[in-house]
Amino acid sequence: MNHHVFIASDRSGTRMKYSAEITVQLKPGILDPEGATIQRALAHLGYSVESVGTAKKLLIELEASDIDEARGALDGMCEKLLANPVVHDYSIEIQ
């Protein structure tokens, strides 16, 4: 039991909290029907715009021992679940 407590307190001493914003969007050239529909609706309101693209933003808070570890974990999350590499690009911003 004591051993357990020691490990936990040791970790909390070295780990930092990070806030990350992950943006997932369609790769260039892939049809974005939602963006195209919004563009048409904007035109109905008199706004003529050249293009509209949509993206999904995910806000993630995590603990890591440093920013590289945080970035590595977030990269893994994007590759394995948050983005579909067939159709998406993603970017990660960490604060």
Partner: peptide, 10 residues
Amino acid sequence: SGALSTNEYP
């Protein structure tokens, strides 16, 4: 293989 995304007419 591949991906399935939103219909062209969404």
